[in-house]
Write a protein that binds this DNA or RNA. Structure first.
Lengths: 256, 256
DNA sequence: AATTTGAAATTGGTTCTACCAATCTTAAAT
DNA sequence: ATTTAAGATTGGTAGAACCAATTTCAAATT
């Protein structure tokens, strides 16, 4: 039995687990917390980390991969492994598989967005700080500036919603919003070219911003609900006759 | 080189092979979809899969690990790698580490639960099928039966909420609910012993069920909101003066 | 002196081989 | 028919070697 003991970080794994991968995930996350590593910071080289943790480099890499697929880390060949910035989220690419496996449709995604974002908008109206308000306003301004460039517009659209979620003051909700919109992003980017014009969209975003700024939760919720409903319709039009189901729908969600 | 093209989502994968890990994730997901593999089914052995995909076993394993950490797959040494289904053992939540790393508080989690579950309850009241209603009723009955066994009671409590989410007819929302409650589960399991009695909790669950059964969305939402608010208070009491951040608590999830 | 170039070191990505450990299968022994 | 034990299957781990992208830094060029 590979009896690996406390690492040099002084961390002992509480229970006896054979899963070295979990061990690595745990120790690395501890390493991050103890060393106060911030987004953008670099982890020690793999060979070094593996040695210090007393595991093979393969095992370490599997553990790191786990963290990468969760969006905690980002690896760049030749450069290093870094703490990922931005809100935590599952890597959008694998997440789409998850979505496919669970038979998500875009209607489902829009409905989930509505549930989440109507609430975050309301909370933002109650809690947003000055800086957060400024961030939202910033994105609205950028949307105005990029109204003729669909790709850029979409980016700021998403950042707007992200900013609103952040202003809700609840990182959990913020993360969930991030995940859902992440799943939609790729597809949205392809259909956006066919979009007509963004004046209506723009106006709705501004209405949301104003409601939040004026501390009107009810209005903020209503505006967001309206916006998402219209976005869903617009998206359906853009989709036209393409299939709207993500992958093969299956996998019931019941419990045994 | 394997020239993989657009998947069903209309998402185009870059034709230039980037990380083989992503390649593996993609190919395995295709394998799952094409072969109609459902939860519980077993994947081919690693050595075999690796050969078929033209990658080394290590690379394959890293790809699989990625899927495992997302909850799509589950590996059992000596047995095989399986498609993960509805987790009967309530373990291994990818979000758990993210939650720890980003210091989600339980107040945040409860708030997120409220946002999600109030909506799922409302939707369930509109859409629940007979079978889904039965599943919810089943869990209520089990809660009655296990009212003297906190651990068992908690399991059925969570399954109740899962069943309600499933009855919303929206797998996306259902998945989000599952993620959030999964993050809470471990800690909750530790404090539940100190809970006094579950009669009030039981009554609230029954009220939710009745509202859904009677097709009263408003009442269902109100009941769920009330329930979660009370649960949050009860939890705060159980916690007493313990820390409320999910930080260092290392949760070890094993399977039978 | 400033810039460019390019070789070498660094670091993540991949492969190969061998072996360990848990599980399953099968057939012999009781 | 049941139990038991040996073998085969399968995931888990290890070490070394090499590939590929990036960074570093000193020499060459301007």
């Amino acid at each position: 039995m590979t009896n690996r003991q406390a690492s040099r970080f002084g961390l002992v794994r509480p229970s006896i687990s054979r899963r070295t991968t979990d061990d690595v995930v745990f120790q690395v996350s501890e390493l991050i917390k103890l060393n106060q590593l911030k987004p953008g910071d670099r982890l020690p080289p793999e060979r070094e980390l593996a040695k210090e943790m007393g595991v093979s480099r393969q095992a370490l890499r599997r553990g790191l991969q786990s963290l990468v697929s969760m969006g905690v880390l980002k690896s760049r060949q030749g450069s290093g492994t870094f703490i990922a910035g931005g809100p935590p989220s599952l890597d959008s690419e694998p997440l789409q598989l998850l979505a496919a496996l669970h038979g998500f449709t875009f209607d489902h995604l829009f409905e989930a967005r509505s549930v989440l974002e109507v609430s975050t908008a309301g909370l933002a109206a109650e809690r947003a700080t000055g800086a957060q308000l400024a961030a939202i306003a910033e994105e609205v301004a950028e949307m105005y500036a990029t109204v003729d460039d669909p790709q850029q517009y979409l980016i700021h659209d998403i950042r707007f919603h992200r900013a609103v979620a952040a202003a809700s003051g609840n990182p959990t909700l913020s993360t969930l919003v991030e995940m859902v919109s992440g799943v939609m992003y790729e597809r949205r980017r392809q259909t956006i070219e066919r979009a007509q014009d963004f004046t209506e969209s723009l106006e709705l975003h501004r209405r949301i911003y104003r409601a939040i700024r004026d501390r009107q939760p009810k209005e903020a919720r209503a505006a967001m609900a309206d916006h998402i409903a219209r976005a869903q319709k617009a998206f359906a039009l853009e989709e036209a006759e393409q299939e709207t189901v993500i992958g093969t729908a299956r996998t019931d969600h019941e419990n045994p």
